[in-house]
Structures are given as structure tokens and as C-alpha cells.
Amino acid sequence: MITIAIIDDDPDILDASGLVLMSKGYKVVTAANPEDGYKIVKENSPDLIILDVMMNEPDDGFFLAQKFRREKITTPIIMYTSISKASGLDYGVNELIPVDEFVEKPISPEQLIEKVEKLLKKKEARDARI
């Protein structure tokens, strides 16, 4: 079964995104802060990570994404973001953010499923090559 980890500090977003993905038959694990997020990824080794920028947390989503990549966790990451934050207002535009896709909230169920399927397919192709 395909497992998707959702890490977001808004419990309602966790719930809503979880509902959408579960309706498509994915197994969903969630975490409400970067620390727990790191834990669930380590424990469940999901096939995909949906990560919010979580600007209010001391170690934000970018930091967590970089941490995953440093530890050679290559799981595709979809980053939930919001307009001013994706456009260089809060961090240097040149900073490398090692995620596969940026998605601006709110995202419709259809779009979310589409992105997830796209990235899972990409991952499958990549894994097959290895």
C-alpha cells in the first residue's frame, strides 16, 4: 500500500488533505510539527511527503526538507506554500529548496490527487531504473 506523509501545523489541513488522499486509497500518516514530521518519515518511510512551509516553527519546512536530503532520504516532496513565501520575500530566492513541487494553498482535491499521482509515477520510474 502506498503511504503518504503529511506534515503541516494546521490540524484542519492535515485532516482535509488526509481525507482526500484516503478516499483514493492511500495510507496517510500525519504530523503537526517538523519534529514529529521527521519521526513519522523515519518510521514509516513513506512513498511521498507533503510538507508545509510552516514558517512559524523554529525549524521550518525548508529546513526539514534539507534535513531529509542531507540524510539521503530521496522521497519526493510536495511543498505547500503560499504566495509571498514562494516568491522570495521571506528567504533568498537563490536558496536551494530540495523539493519536487511547490503547491499554493488552497489546492483543490483534484489538483492534489493529480500532483500526487504525477510524483508517484515519477518515483516509480526512478526506482525502476535503479
Binding site: I13, A16, V20, S23, K105, P106, I107, P109
Partner: peptide
């Protein structure tokens, strides 16, 4: 507002 929107979407999708 984003959360409200997401819930509306889910309810409307009849999930």
C-alpha cells in the same frame, strides 16, 4: 480561510 476552503472542497466532492 484555506482550511475552510479545503473542507468545502471535501464536502462538495462527496468524499
Amino acid at each position: 480561510l484555506t482550511a475552510v476552503h479545503s473542507y468545502l472542497d471535501i464536502v462538495l466532492k462527496k468524499i
